[in-house]
Design a binder for these strands. Structure first.
Lengths: 189, 189
DNA sequence: TTGCGCGGAGAACGATCGTTCTCTACTGTA
DNA sequence: TACAGTAGAGAACGATCGTTCTCCGCGCAA
């Protein structure tokens, strides 16, 4: 038998892929069982309900996102460059063939009205991203008001890329971010 | 009996409110029937399927959105101001108690993977908005590259406001738009 | 070898959904 | 009054979903 940790990971990874590709409600637990290779009984011993599995998947997505962001930031030497790597990271993501928008935004649109657990997980992720941007903005010595503006650019790029089906939004958002950074630098001195 | 036009309007209006408040998949046709006061048989004589009703609702939302945007723009005298009224319009919308994000983004996240008709309607609306912004940018004599940047700000403000539950994003996006407009004017001379 | 406990496969259950069908009541005409 | 046509109310149908239950087979102690 597979040990509990591996089984958990298999279920979350399979559910993540299916939920992201088809939407949460369009994927039945049977499909998760088949994809994960873990029996339904086992799944329900690991997660009390589908709702709990959804939240676990969102937490897993948060880690993936954070790691991707941190990995992209490593290539930068200055705080300003580190901010711009956010949009380079988005650009690479948008070009992945199975890109289908931000899983958190999608989950919120689909379940936000009915599941407060989902709303909480999504809100926590977005707030963490806001704080990440705020740290970078502070490191760059830019005014704090710049942070939510950059975060809004990143959010808008994600929905625009998802709906349009092209990765152009990353480039546009990056250009806007540069303009905002330049303007902030000009004001500062 | 209600005439066909009124029945159609009643169904679309009822479905729009329910879909927006609870999500499309969470609302059954029975609930639409009850809210619209139109029998199921009649609904299915007006719309071949739920999918067709969803698309009709999205078209109705497009008109509402266009009218709201045009109404806000009327108050402006210059092209630059007309661009900024977009964010004033968003601000007012975000403050409505039943605001729950952009219906098109929500519908795309929920059904975009399974219904190409929904994807098409959503994509058409977003493209129309992009073109609207592009016209205003041209009227303002700003470089065309500014248009997608402003549109991305508007999209990002909508998702940020929906998830955070506060209307602050409209103010932040407006400030960013002003900076971008100023920078474009500075370059132009 | 025998008995036991546990896990896998998937059938079963109750609820709900989109869609269709049945039955009844009403309208207008001769 | 008798009749044809239509629309409303909601029951019915088949499918699907989340969740639970049953049955079977395998590994291990004595």
């Amino acid at each position: 038998m597979i040990d509990e940790k591996t089984a958990r990971e298999n279920v979350i990874r399979a559910a993540d892929e299916l939920f992201y590709a088809h939407g949460v409600q369009a994927v039945g637990m049977d499909a998760v069982r088949t994809a994960a290779g873990v029996s339904l009984k086992r799944i329900y011993s690991l997660f009390a309900s589908k709702d709990e599995l959804i939240v676990a998947v969102l937490h897993h997505r948060t880690e993936t996102w954070d790691n991707g962001l941190a990995g992209a930031a490593e290539r930068a030497t200055t705080a300003r460059e580190r901010i711009l790597t956010i949009f380079d990271f988005l650009d690479g993501w948008f070009r992945e063939p199975d890109f289908r928008g931000c899983a958190f935004i999608n989950a919120h649109g689909e379940l936000g009205a009915s599941s407060s657990a989902v709303t909480g997980a999504v809100r926590a992720q977005k707030q963490a991203f806001q704080e990440y941007v705020a740290r970078l903005v502070a490191d760059a010595g830019a005014p704090p008001a710049l942070a939510p503006q950059l975060a809004i650019l990143a959010e808008g790029a994600q929905t625009t890329a998802a709906i349009s089906g092209t990765p152009d939004a990353a480039r546009h958002a990056r250009a806007a971010a540069e303009t905002l950074l330049d303007a902030a630098a000009r004001v500062r001195g």
